[in-house]
Design a protein around this nucleic acid. Structure first.
Lengths: 215, 215
DNA sequence: GTAACGAACGCAACTCAGTAACAAATTTAT
DNA sequence: ATAAATTTGTTACTGAGTTGCGTTCGTTAC
């Protein structure tokens, strides 16, 4: 076996390639329609027709209507756990998570809520302002917390699970807040530093507790 | 007006009474069926028939199938906010919340996850082990966080929102953990003290931060 | 007590998400 | 080229939630 290659993808394959393309097409068509007319106002039958597949085929690629939108978050699933596991020696988990979040802000990654791109902003608006999608998003967040807890303490201790839950909750608030500012017409030159400041507040709260903040 | 009476319920009324009774009946019938055969295995049509109402009537009382179960949590909505608002002078918000949670544990309140009652345990099992219900439950939790944040800081400051998110996340973990122990066959004489100890860990983490716990 | 009003209800029919069964088409392996 | 495995389309179904309408029943005024 060639070193540096993962063993479980021996050939791209013509079939696999077409599948990826079909999946991408369906999702793109769906999101475009949702952005145009709203999540509830577009039926899956219409999406299937526009993507030129049958309805059962659509559901072979995406388990639910919500997944058509939320699969984009699937890539980041377990990221917090990875950050902690792969952190530099001598760094606390919380330090590693803070640096990672600040790096995400600097790169204007969608998941941080801080971005200039009108398309990404519209996408986030779709997710945050559609109750069905927001609700489902919380499930992803929950899975992320589980992965983080596992990374912090494979024994499954309560302290790790508590801290993981706190962290992902805080992350959600930071992302939504940053997005809300931009969605409300804030300039990114203003929202960026503000998001960084809010991140500092958040991690100070996580690190030193509520007592230090007067709660 | 008679002192000590709330002004907004001038008459019970025969119609209102029947409505409350109908609502109760529908929910009770539904939960009994769910407990017996599982959430997905019971259709709303069947529930409506068993409760002797039509399907549209059922949906006039409960917006969704999930609400048939989760409306029981609606009573506690905003409780955290109330606890903070009505706390004794000289008590920090966090102290008030901790005392309230410990009181809930001592009273074996269902929301704490700590209870002897097999019926309540079965009900919690239904909620926690049915994905649709767990997901919806997170929405209630989210609303609770908003109310708590408002109570902590009517200005809507970020620190209050962050802390509120942390608190409700922690509360969820505590409740699920306590329940999991009992559901796994633990005796309440063992689970009770354990839940109290976990509560202490949780509030220590909230109060003094992750640094103190080595994260 | 009775008539009039409005709220709640049942019935029937509908939309839409998601699934099942089976047959046709297409890719991969031989 | 041909057989085996995988993917797809068609049709038809279940079940959640909604709509429109006519009817019933509690409430209120006379």
């Amino acid at each position: 076996m060639i070193p540096g290659m993962t063993p479980s993808e021996p050939e791209p394959g013509l079939r696999t390639l077409k599948k990826q393309r079909t999946r991408q097409t369906i999702a793109d068509v769906a999101i475009a329609l949702f952005l145009d007319r709203g999540f509830a106002q577009v039926s899956v039958a219409e999406i299937a027709a526009a993507a030129e597949v049958s309805k059962p085929t659509l559901f072979r690629y995406f388990a639910t209507k919500e997944e058509l939108v939320l699969h984009r978050f699937a890539d980041h699933l377990g990221e917090a756990g990875r950050v902690v596991r792969d952190r530099a020696a001598g760094l606390t988990p919380l330090d590693a998570l803070e640096r990672h979040h600040l790096a995400g802000l600097a790169a204007h990654e969608p998941q941080t809520g801080l971005t200039d791109d009108p398309e990404v902003l519209a996408f986030l608006r779709l997710v945050y302002e559609t109750p069905e999608l927001s609700a489902q998003l919380l499930d992803y967040v929950d899975a992320d917390a589980d992965a983080l807890a596992e990374a912090l303490d494979p024994e499954g201790g309560i302290a790790a699970r508590l801290f993981a839950a706190q962290y992902v909750a805080v992350r959600q608030v930071l992302a939504r807040t940053a997005w809300a500012g931009l969605a409300g017409g804030q300039d990114i030159a203003e929202a960026g530093p503000r998001a960084v400041a809010e991140t500092a507040t958040a991690f100070a709260l996580l690190r030193d507790g509520a007592r230090a903040q007067g709660f």
